[in-house]
Design a protein around this nucleic acid. Structure first.
Lengths: 158, 158
DNA sequence: CGATCCGGGCAACCTGGTTGACTATCTCGT
DNA sequence: ACGAGATAGTCAACCAGGTTGCCCGGATCG
């Protein structure tokens, strides 16, 4: 599939999909080059959620990611095995398990943030600083409107 | 996951993913409202390839979609069962099967194109005509550069 | 207290892809 | 002319990443 003419109507979704793929490919390329395990986007979102909320249970994680508890738990267990997060008993509720980033996890997040910023600078160098900002703003406008009250969905329907 | 501040660095990929998701959700919503079966993006890409190239074999399809021939065949069989494409023996090569859109398939494609154009107009009404064009151009620039000589990838890594 | 709700784990299953093996047919070099 | 190797397709087994259903034990509230 060749990249569509951006002036042509109706190719927006296609372009966004290709853009997402190209950016994440670049991200993994850089990550791998530095010896980091290239985790999948789902893991990255767990990192961001934990960074934002501090500590969460698997159930809360699942709700944020639009995943079942079971799926969220499995991702969390994977990350624990890699040493990126810790699972500890909840201090007040003995049913629950509290997930939190380890130092290694926070390091990974910081590094990932730096890489994303770098990739975005690469994009800006190519397409122009304002063009990239305008693109992000335009997409954000649609996403916000589409999400309405709710939370915008992440995972692509494929 | 709340929609990130578009000015913040490092959220570009996230935004593109959410944008793609929001646009395809809208597409499926419209399609369903009119009684069309909401096929998945992969089916849509087969339609576009067949429209562009006329006729293809499953193997060629697989190559374009970055899929094994087995996976491509399965998608084609599904579409045949829905009546959107025909599978006929190749006139010169008795090993091969030629895939082509049926009238029903061409109708679906035409309708899908109209819907995508409509969705893009909705986006333009929200974010501004030039902003949307600029966004598409900026994304296309990155995709093209990233693809280099090759063909840009479609399917998101998740 | 007891009924019910909720977090989590286990097992079975589903979907959409992959790999590997096999057959039938085509192609090309000698 | 023909045999070797490439190629189109199919079938079967497997795998990854999700889901649903069920169960347990701890919380909560009448």
């Amino acid at each position: 599939m060749t990249s569509p003419d951006p002036a042509r109507r109706g190719t927006a979704a296609l372009l966004l999909a290709m853009g997402f793929r190209a950016l994440t490919d670049r991200f993994h390329e850089l990550l791998r080059a530095e010896g980091y395990e290239p985790l999948r986007p789902a893991h990255g979102f767990i990192f961001r959620l934990l960074e934002e909320h501090g500590e969460l249970t698997a159930t809360q994680l699942g709700a944020h990611l639009e995943l079942t508890r079971q799926a969220a738990t499995r991702l969390a267990v994977e990350l624990e095995q890699w040493g990126y997060l810790s699972r500890a008993p909840h201090p007040r509720d003995r049913r629950a398990t509290v997930l939190a980033l380890t130092a290694r996890g926070r390091d990974y997040v910081a590094h990932a943030d730096a890489l994303w910023a770098r990739i975005e600078r690469e994009w800006a160098a190519l397409a122009g600083e304002q063009a990239v900002t305008a693109a992000k703003t335009a997409v954000a406008a649609y996403v916000e409107q589409a999400a309405g009250e709710g939370v915008p969905s992440l995972r692509p329907v494929w």
